[in-house]
Design a protein around this nucleic acid. Structure first.
Lengths: 123, 123
DNA sequence: CAGGATCCTATCCGATACTG
DNA sequence: CAGTATCGGATAGGATCCTG
């Protein structure tokens, strides 16, 4: 089985049997798997978070990158942004349906690596 | 429910409820989701490939980045490398068990995004 | 609290040239 | 064929300052 080299399993109509530069899927995957995008998506998987909560959750991310990453994810339709015009203003981020859809395999990836690197399972 | 903020679902013993810099899992995820690592892993998911086959499969990657990415993935134990001392030499790469384990959610991610971006499902 | 603007550095990454 | 070494441009990304 397995046929040829790159044919993905014809999931949506085999338009991508290699990974060309102009494939929109590739672009989106690159966004999703961007340095900080991964962690934002995983962080938001269970519930919405405020800007600062996200920042605390993802150790090492700067305000700039967090804001930049969030903006990109919102543009891509993976994350929603809710502004509550209070004082001080509260902004909450969460996953859209698409975001959850994408976040699932990402979380699975995270879990599997955690499991593999865990000292418990290996011994 | 969902309890607190970041607790992942205690998959391997809740040692990471945030994503600290010194978490080995985080490092590994960063490798896996690196710019080219994603595509190498997805490319290799069905069968082993030669260096040039990989290069053709992943449009836009340079020899340098491919070799660099492969070396990193081999070091991480995700990819094996088999050298056949023929002339000219043939080097084949493929996924280890861990690599397949990790490649699965990655492929799923790819599939979901493809499905979402596919003109067929949306209309 | 949330985040934009600027500056500057580290790194990524591609092109080229060379080796076994 | 399958790489390695080096250089240089592009970009990512952190630190700081500033606004609503």
């Amino acid at each position: 089985m397995r046929g040829g080299v790159q044919r993905n399993r014809a999931v949506a109509g085999e338009q991508c049997d290699v990974f060309p530069t102009d494939c929109p899927t590739r672009d989106m995957v690159d966004h999703v798997t961007s340095r900080w995008g991964v962690w934002v998506l995983i962080s938001l998987r269970s519930n919405g978070l405020r800007f600062h909560e996200l920042r605390e959750s993802i150790q090492g991310i700067s305000e700039k990158m967090l804001s930049q990453t969030l903006r990109a994810l919102v543009e891509d339709g993976l994350v929603w942004r809710k502004v509550e015009p209070t004082t001080p203003p509260q902004v909450t981020y969460g996953l859209t349906e698409f975001g959850r859809d994408v976040g699932e395999p990402l979380t699975e990836l995270f879990d599997r690596i955690t499991r593999q690197l865990s000292p418990r399972g290996t011994g």
